[in-house]
């Protein structure tokens, strides 16, 4: 197999079964070095299984993958020395204190006793955990737990960091902290592969996104590319007078030739548009018919709309519980 030194991860037809379920059903990846790569998909899509294989925790049933050129099964130890994984659930020892956890892992990684201590203190300070350093991790809040998890993953700054749903169940403040950490990691040269169920998160952080559904990548690209692949954009109109809506709906349908969506707000309408040049005509058409418009926006589709178009269902966890 060819080696692309510029790629952090390349995989070819990765497959993993659990019993009869094909959790991962032929994943092909080419993740560039540097930046954030996002796996976007609902619960049970195969995101976690894929990164567990890439982090050498799980042996693929078939297919191959290389991390920085090292084959994940045959050269597992070489892979392990370049990557780090922060799992979805606490990946530190909850019975130990924050300091003890970091010292333990630093010692295992080869630091001497005093170096390990110094590194632990440095990380606790960087992650705003000094006050909790001597407390057992089981007493930590969700955000603190997440931070100690990530701190434990970067004792030796990895070249590639896997973050499995790093912000699930976090409050907005803690989520922003984690996002800041991810961005700082990237500026310091670490490649981050993160999984998320949240479109906003992928949109905010990821340079490239792979949309995963039922163990397969259904789309891949920058968030802009993904949005473009779905259509040029969405038109949102808000009328001054809700009574005008039926009339406006008729106009829109006539002029654009696409279905018009009526929002729950009685004064709003929206439509997916494939030919943006028609939008200007529509505006003059509306004013000619004396339908006052309060706001008018034409933008790219949201990632949620992308997901819906690509997979036929929403990307939210609830809607997919039955589909796992």
């Amino acid at each position: 197999m060819k080696r692309h030194s510029a790629l952090a991860i390349e995989s070819h037809e990765l497959v993993k079964h659990f019993g009869k379920v094909r959790a991962v059903d032929g994943i092909n990846l080419a993740v560039p070095t540097g930046g954030v790569y996002g796996f976007l998909g609902p619960n049970g899509a195969g995101k976690t299984t894929t990164i567990r294989m890439l982090a050498t925790l799980l042996r693929p049933d078939s297919g191959t993958a290389r991390v920085f050129g090292h084959e994940i099964v045959r050269e597992a130890n070489a892979v392990r020395s370049r990557v780090s994984l922060t799992g979805q659930f606490a990946s530190v020892d909850e019975d130990l204190t924050g300091t003890e956890n970091l010292v333990l892992l630093a010692r295992l990684l080869g630091y001497s006793r005093s170096q390990a201590r110094a590194r632990a203190i440095e990380l606790l300070e960087a992650f705003d955990l000094v006050d909790a350093a001597r407390r057992q991790v089981k007493t930590y809040s969700g955000g603190m737990r997440r931070r100690i998890d990530i701190a434990a993953s970067i004792i030796v700054t990895p070249d590639l960091l896997f973050l499995d749903e790093p912000t699930s169940e976090l409050d907005p403040y803690s989520r922003n902290q984690v996002w800041d950490i991810v961005r700082t990691l990237v500026t310091e040269g670490t490649t981050v592969l993160l999984t998320t169920q949240h479109l906003e998160e992928a949109d905010q952080l990821a340079d490239r996104i792979a949309v995963i559904d039922h163990g397969r990548i259904v789309a891949e690209g920058t968030s802009g590319e993904l949005k473009a692949s779905v259509g040029s954009g969405t038109l949102h109109i808000r009328l001054r007078n809700p009574d005008h809506r039926p009339q406006a709906e008729q106009l829109l349908t006539l002029n654009l030739g696409v279905p018009v969506f009526l929002k729950s707000d009685p004064a709003e309408l929206s439509a997916h548009i494939s030919e943006p040049e028609r939008v200007t005509d529509l505006l003059s058409e509306l004013s000619r018919s004396d339908i006052p418009v309060i706001s008018f926006s034409f933008g790219q589709p949201s990632l949620d709309e992308v997901f819906l178009t690509l997979t036929g269902h929403h990307a939210t966890a609830d809607e997919n519980k039955g589909a796992v």
């Binding site: 982090a55 925790l57 994984l85």
Partner: peptide
């Protein structure tokens, strides 16, 4: 627990 994965992913 997640700690098991952590240990197993160490070199």
């Amino acid at each position: 627990k997640g700690i098991f994965d952590r240990f197993r992913s160490l070199p």
